[in-house]
Amino acid sequence: MNPNTPGQTIDRRLLRPREPKPFPTAKSHIDAGGTLPREAGVLVVQGEDLGAWLKAQRLGWDKLGAAQQWLLESVLGVEEAGEDARPVRRTRDDKWMLNLAAARRFHAREGHLNVPRKHTELVSVDEAGRGAAGVEASSGAGLQGVPVALGMWLANTRRRANKLTGARRADLDALGMRWYATAAPVPSSCTPKASQAG
């Protein structure tokens, strides 16, 4: 097909950049005597993070077609991720406790909660409790602790103060939380008067 010939068009699918094909890359790696990693960032071959791809295949097993599952099982020796390999979902209460632990840690060290908006606090897994459930090593958690975007959380919490329960507000008040001032009522002299039809 010549795009310069009148009446001829180009199939646009032919112009798309070629998508990477992790399966052949993974098969070539195994054929060369290598093993496939279970975590992201461990093995990158020809620009493909085989660990990230493999993890996505294992966690999304139900979304794969029968032929894809068969190829992964028979050719690469990959099986569906078990319940222990699936990420744990944290509840809102777990997330609150994690953020509160970060606020307590910052307050104990600094003596205030005037946290810069971009500040990230590292909380040990012991302090975080159930709030650390599901946090992976690749997300920055490790020996240092669980990273918490404390400045952003405090700014959002201040903005949504009217939606907090009394207990949660009391937890932050105990740490000396500065709340945003509430909007003052508008004086009646500033409100528009209804026009009178005459």
Rank of each mutant, 00 (worst) to 15 (best):
M1H: 14
T5L: 12
Q8A: 05
Q8W: 04
Q8E: 01
I10L: 08
D11I: 07
R13C: 06
R18L: 02
R18C: 00
E19N: 10
E19W: 11
P24M: 02
T25K: 02
T25R: 01
A26I: 06
S28K: 05
H29S: 01
G33T: 13
G34P: 09
G34C: 06
G34D: 01
E39H: 08
A40P: 05
L43C: 01
Q46K: 15
G47Q: 09
L50D: 00
G51S: 12
K55D: 08
W61F: 09
L64K: 10
A66M: 10
A67Y: 13
W70C: 07
E73N: 14
S74R: 07
L76A: 13
G77W: 06
V78G: 02
E79S: 15
E80H: 08
G82E: 06
E83F: 12
P87Y: 06
P87D: 01
P87Q: 11
R89A: 14
R90D: 02
K95C: 07
K95E: 07
M97F: 08
L98F: 07
L100S: 04
L100V: 06
A108Y: 10
R109C: 01
R117F: 06
H119C: 07
V125P: 03
G129L: 08
R130Q: 09
R130D: 04
G131W: 04
G131R: 10
A132M: 05
A137S: 10
S138A: 14
G142E: 03
G142M: 06
L143T: 15
L143Q: 13
G145D: 05
A149P: 14
A149F: 12
A149C: 07
G151T: 09
G151P: 05
M152K: 12
L154M: 03
A155Q: 09
R159V: 14
R160G: 15
R160L: 12
K163C: 03
G166R: 07
G166E: 14
A167N: 15
D171G: 01
D171Q: 04
L172R: 02
L172K: 05
A174P: 08
L175G: 09
M177V: 13
M177D: 03
R178I: 14
Y180I: 15
A183V: 15
A184F: 07
P185V: 13
V186R: 02
P187L: 09
C190P: 03
C190T: 13
T191D: 00
T191F: 02
K193H: 10
Q196V: 15
